[in-house]
Design a protein around this nucleic acid. Structure first.
Lengths: 399, 399
DNA sequence: GGTACTTATTAAGGAGACCATCATTAGTAC
DNA sequence: GTACTAATGATGGTCTCCTTAATAAGTACC
């Protein structure tokens, strides 16, 4: 949101700008009176009334009972109608498909999950996605027609247009126009983005990094990766390949997970998905072998992290991904390693949003795009809460 | 420019937006007729006329003789008055102080240079700066009162407010409010920024990287550094410490210049500032020892460059700094080293702006700030070309 | 219960900025 | 000199915002 290409126009454009100002003040905030809105938007009271009346008529805003017990005549209060439309965020992982439905303020109404086989054929996977979303809508008491937008986070390289180039962990993901495929299933626009990036977005909008403009998100788990929020926006890079510092040999990131997975202390036969957790738990209890493994891991982690920090000087670094459940074990040695090389030490935190991270990020991503659509200077004016006929594609509209 | 926080207001705000649209169309472009402006801005002809008339009255725009030989009644033509105000860009290096004065379109009118001693005391250095700028103004036939803004690029760590924390190569630069000091000398706002960053900006606005949104600038010379242009804007980072990947031990950047400076082929007694040039010239002629040294240097260079490329996926990487005069020698081995690790290979080029890079970047930086000032939503409306009384400080106004 | 005070609402008048339309003007083409 | 072309200038109308002033609906206090 926020930065759209600034452009003039006729008087209706001015009204549009003022409408947006009012909605921005109301959304995600307590109900407000006309006086408050007038002061915050800089408009006069009568004009504010005009704008609010129009927004009410269009269905964006509704009146709530006035607050009691105040001096003077009780002021009418208005709030944003977050339930005017609904968004779905989907997280398509190799082993799990998650979905959550939220209102226009990003409040989650319902959430569902369903296991998946990493090697499932495309048809099966698409059907599973549909089922998860339908379930989720049911749970929230909604139907397909309530959907304004679906945003999907998944592993692999994703183009701004919603094509998947490839994914190492999902065999069906191979040169695929996932956006188009899912738009045949759902009656609305479907956005696709890399899952780590969406997790980073969620942490920036509602997690530990809330309010930060520059954030480095370290995805640590059986696969390593990074995602960047720069100037408050998701950074994709020219070819949507940003965040791949794992490919730098000097970091040792490709093999780093092995330090935890194959530590000498892990009992024979432990399933691979539990191995690192075992090592980290042992380290928490002070086991020297485990601590040694953690030391080796964080040393590698620190190399890539330091590269990102020195280059970008972020306000905060967030640890996410599977291993971040043990952030308490990893943070001290990581901080120690970073302090030796970093010019200015950023804040350092573990993710707080946990497994829902990607789904929440997808919802936030969808909200960003709704803004771009409704508030665009040359787009359609503010509309009643019905499904927009055409929404510009992500990468294209941002110009 | 471009992205300012979108806000409504009264009718004058609309006029302001439309005025900005017109100026943006005129600035840096050929004189235009009302019909052309009306079409490009989306305004009606009468309104365009109104806006242009007002801008003419304020001194932002002037009429030029109509084009001849066209069908129909000759249209009046208007152009942006780039000479309505002037900006000075200054490059304060350890051994040289450069300055250039430019008009509001960034066209350089005059340029001066003056040697300096790295260990000169503060007073002497400040006096030298003043003399260089005065000289430059003289050469351009201007006086101090024509100055709208001065932008300074210098080595070291610079805060967004214009304080210098420290600099390794200029002894007088030590915890210093350079912005304030120079504002006592010049009758206008003085902006300070790191020199590499300004060089990167110049390359993005008028050099090899023109038009690119994401640019990585590698400063290679007796000191190594990087600067980033992200989403078209200079990236400073939270503590203005971005671009310091030189501090990452794994890159070997701290000692990398030694590979070229102390190559076995360099004759005894060669002044340090010519040593690398000697090695690079020898390498160009195929000398094996020199080529070996270049190989060692580019290998280190590639590590830091790869970190930046993999993280950010820029459109283009620009080689700047003293060594970049021999970019033709360095680029092939660098490209070769990068191709082995980069997921998507960016364009790779040497700087084309040469020694004037920082001064030009300073001018472009000043232009960006003028925009922010004049076109800010809550700032003063468009004004006649007289020196603005107060211009918001860089970092603060950008919110 | 009545009066004073406080804060919102409502209504009226006015100014600024935009638009559409049309008659007029100043060139070129032949 | 006539036909054609394209820009100019003037008129009237609409929309959005602002200011000001009268009215309304509560609380506080006697």
């Amino acid at each position: 949101m926020s930065s759209l290409s600034l452009k003039g126009g006729d008087l209706s454009r001015l009204r549009q700008l003022n409408s947006v100002s009012v909605i921005k003040e109301l959304r995600g905030a307590e109900p407000a009176t006309l006086s408050i809105l007038a002061e915050r938007t800089g408009l006069s009271r009568p004009s504010t009334k005009d704008v609010v009346d129009e927004l009410t008529r269009l269905g964006w805003v509704e009146e709530v009972p006035p607050a009691t017990g105040t001096m003077g005549r009780p002021a009418r209060r208005y709030r944003f109608r977050a339930d005017g439309g609904h968004l779905v965020g989907v997280d398509i992982g190799a082993h799990n498909i998650r979905a959550a439905v939220a209102d226009l303020e990003g409040n989650v109404l319902a959430e569902t999950r369903r296991p998946a086989r990493p090697d499932a054929p495309l048809e099966e996977r698409l059907a599973a996605i549909k089922r998860v979303v339908m379930n989720c809508l049911d749970l929230g008491g909604l139907t397909m027609s309530d959907l304004w937008m679906v945003a999907v986070g998944t592993t692999g390289l994703v183009t701004p247009e919603g094509r998947i180039i490839m994914s190492a962990s999902i065999s069906a993901w191979k040169d695929l126009d996932l956006s188009r495929l899912l738009e045949e299933t759902f009656p609305c626009r479907v956005l696709i983005e890399n899952d780590s990036r969406l997790a980073a977005l969620a942490e920036t909008r509602r997690g530990v990094a809330r309010g930060a403009r520059d954030v480095v998100f370290l995805h640590i788990g059986r696969r390593m990766g990074t995602a960047l929020i720069l100037d408050g926006k998701l950074h994709r890079g020219f070819g949507a390949a940003a965040g791949e510092i794992v490919m730098l040999p000097e970091t040792g990131w490709v093999t780093a997970p092995e330090d935890l997975n194959s530590a000498a202390i892990v009992p024979e036969g432990t399933p691979i998905e539990d191995a690192a957790g075992f090592t980290l738990a042992a380290a928490r209890n002070g086991d020297p072998t485990a601590l040694d493994a953690v030391g080796r891991f964080t040393k590698k982690l620190a190399v890539g992290a330091a590269a990102a920090i020195l280059l970008l000087d972020p306000e905060i670094v967030v640890l996410g991904g599977g291993f971040s459940r043990s952030a308490d074990v990893l943070l001290p040695p990581l901080r120690h390693a970073l302090e030796r090389v970093c010019l200015r030490m950023p804040k350092l935190s573990g993710s707080t949003l946990g497994d829902e991270c990607v789904v929440l990020g997808a919802i936030d991503y969808a909200i960003d795009h709704l803004d771009q659509f409704f508030f665009a200077p040359d787009g359609p004016a503010l509309r009643p809460p019905v499904r927009p006929a055409v929404v510009p594609k992500p990468g294209l509209s941002s110009k």
